[in-house]
Computed example of a mutant assay.
Amino acid sequence: MIMDSFRAVILAAIQGLTEFLPVSSSGHLVLPQTLFGWEDQGLAFDVAVHVGSLLAVLWYFRLEVRAILGDWFASLVSRKHTENSRLGWMVIVATIPAVLAGLIFNDFIELHLRSGYVLATTTLVFGVLLGLVDRYAKHGKQLADITLRFAIIIGLAQAVALIPGTSRSGITITAALMLGLNRSDSARFSFLLSMPIIAAAGSYKLLELIEGSDPVAWNFLAIGAVVSAVTAYTCIRLFMSWVERMGMMPFAIYRVLLAAVLFWVLAS
């Protein structure tokens, strides 16, 4: 019982800390499972940590979400758009490619791309790409400058994140930086974009859980949800306060080192 609770805390903390950082949460979750021989945490636990992560990002951006939703719904009636309503539409447009890709390619990814070497390779490749874009791209645009083309490109990038090790936040931030957004607005748009996709993924997993017959250990799910929410909120808050000053290079370097560790673990 103590060991199961300890494992739940560790895995939920890893999920919460890495869900919104551009470092690949799946790359981190495979390490304790491989090193300690832990079994997969299971579908119910995945749902719990998704709920925790979603609550964290919703709470941090609650004022912005309220303004965006209010203006978006008002625009449906008045046909007049504000910066917030436009941003709402951009989030919707950018979400569509990942949803479609998930429906079309989910089974293929589960069967063919959930290997340790794929995970390590994508951790490395997209980490290097993040560093290059952060170093050489111009970062002068703001959220108000996001166009339909921007939203589609960032949405296509988010669809690529279905491949394990890519990092959803990492590749959407990379795409936003490549298009010229400043670092803090790139992160902000990535976090806003995470809400519908985390909700969709959590709902899909919840449906699988309801249709299944496995017993549910509610105490472990509660631990997972709470720890994931607290660590994710802390992570978002620190990241948003630091990102403009320190940039993405520390995360790019960290990803390269993580990939090296993953390759070493897989080869040993």
Rank of each mutant, 00 (worst) to 15 (best):
L209R: 02
G202I: 03
S190K: 05
I197L: 14
F239N: 10
L209M: 15
V226F: 05
G212W: 04
W218D: 00
Y204W: 11
I210T: 01
S203P: 04
F191N: 08
A200Q: 03
R237W: 12
V227I: 14
P196S: 10
D214Q: 15
L207A: 15
L181I: 14
L181T: 12
G202C: 03
P215T: 07
G180A: 12
S213E: 11
V226A: 02
W218E: 02
E244A: 13
L193E: 05
E244M: 03
G180K: 13
I198Y: 00
V227Q: 12
A217I: 08
A176E: 12
A225R: 02
D214S: 15
V227N: 03
S190E: 14
E244I: 00
L209I: 06
M178Y: 15
K205Q: 10
A217M: 10
F191A: 07
M195F: 10
I210K: 05
G224V: 08
A222W: 11
T231P: 00
I210P: 03
E208R: 09
A175M: 05
A225W: 03
V226R: 04
L207K: 15
E211I: 13
F189K: 14
A200N: 05
K205T: 09
L181Q: 14
L238E: 10
R237Y: 14
A176Q: 11
D185S: 14
F220A: 03
G224Q: 01
A200C: 02
L177E: 09
I236P: 00
E208Q: 14
S194M: 04
I223H: 03
R237F: 14
Y204C: 00
A200S: 06
S213R: 13
I198M: 06
I210N: 08
W218G: 03
A201W: 06
A232R: 01
S241L: 09
R245M: 02
N219M: 08
N219F: 12
L181S: 15
R245A: 13
F189V: 13
F239G: 04
S184D: 12
S190V: 06
G180W: 13
R183A: 07
A229I: 06
F220R: 15
A222H: 08
G212Q: 05
I210L: 03
L206S: 04
M240Q: 07
A222C: 13
S203F: 12
L193G: 01
G224I: 09
V216H: 01
P196K: 11
L206E: 02
M195C: 10
N219K: 11
M195Y: 00
E208W: 01
I197E: 07
L181A: 12
L179W: 13
G180E: 10
C235M: 13
Y233R: 07
I198A: 00
V216M: 00
V216I: 15
I236Q: 01
A200L: 02
G202V: 04
S241P: 00
L238Q: 09
T231E: 00
S241W: 03
R237I: 00
N182V: 08
Y233F: 15
L238D: 04
